[in-house]
């Protein structure tokens, strides 16, 4: 049944991606990209990676949508039609996809007990975490306890980036205000 749910979600993702390709109005594209991100978050949830799913939803459906809308406010709302067909981007996309698929061939099969993720230090962490930290969720314990300073540094980096983006967007909006009437 898991497989069936995954198949339905993947079908919806493919349909959304095709709709994004065909759309010329960028506002609709932003909406569809948000829905695409929600769908991939659902996929992560069915794969039992709830924390990854939440990051995907917060970044993909939340912050990215807002940032893309902010960009649209500063630039154009329509996608320009390309004048002629250029094969280079298609070639780059196809080669990248082929390389990525080639890269998955070496990976252990899904859920395999012999994969390095299962046989390395993970078992020790699963055993030691409740004793060492007393936190019930192992992922949370590793992020916030074993790698506490690392996580703190990451938080500082993300916070700095957010402040920088806010300063940039706010500054541009104020500078553009005088000619707001005839922009676009």
């Amino acid at each position: 049944m898991d497989v069936l749910i995954n198949l339905v979600l993947f079908a919806m993702m493919v349909a959304t991606a095709l709709a994004i390709l065909r759309m010329r109005r960028l506002f609709a594209v932003v909406m569809l990209a948000g829905v695409f991100s929600l769908l991939s978050a659902l996929l992560f949830v069915t794969l039992d990676a709830v924390d990854v799913a939440f990051t995907e939803a917060a970044v993909g459906a939340g912050i990215s949508t807002v940032l893309m809308l902010g960009t649209m406010a500063l630039t154009s709302r329509e996608e320009k039609m390309p004048r002629k067909f250029s094969p280079l981007p298609l070639l780059v996309v196809c080669i990248t996809g082929a390389v990525l698929i080639y890269g998955t061939l070496d990976m252990p099969s899904f859920g395999s007990a012999q994969s390095p993720a299962q046989t390395h230090v993970a078992a020790q962490y699963l055993e030691r975490t409740p004793k060492d930290t007393g936190v019930p969720n192992v992922v949370t314990a590793i992020l916030a306890s074993y790698r506490g300073y690392d996580t703190f540094g990451e938080t500082v980096v993300v916070f700095t980036a957010a402040v920088g983006v806010l300063i940039l967007i706010g500054g541009f909006a104020r500078r553009r205000d005088p000619e707001e009437g005839d922009a676009d």
Partner: peptide
């Protein structure tokens, strides 16, 4: 929050200021 942001864009045509 996402829907509020989108509707704010509709109303004011800007997100930040």
């Amino acid at each position: 929050v996402g829907t509020i942001a989108v509707l704010k864009y509709f109303r004011y045509r800007a997100i930040g200021d």
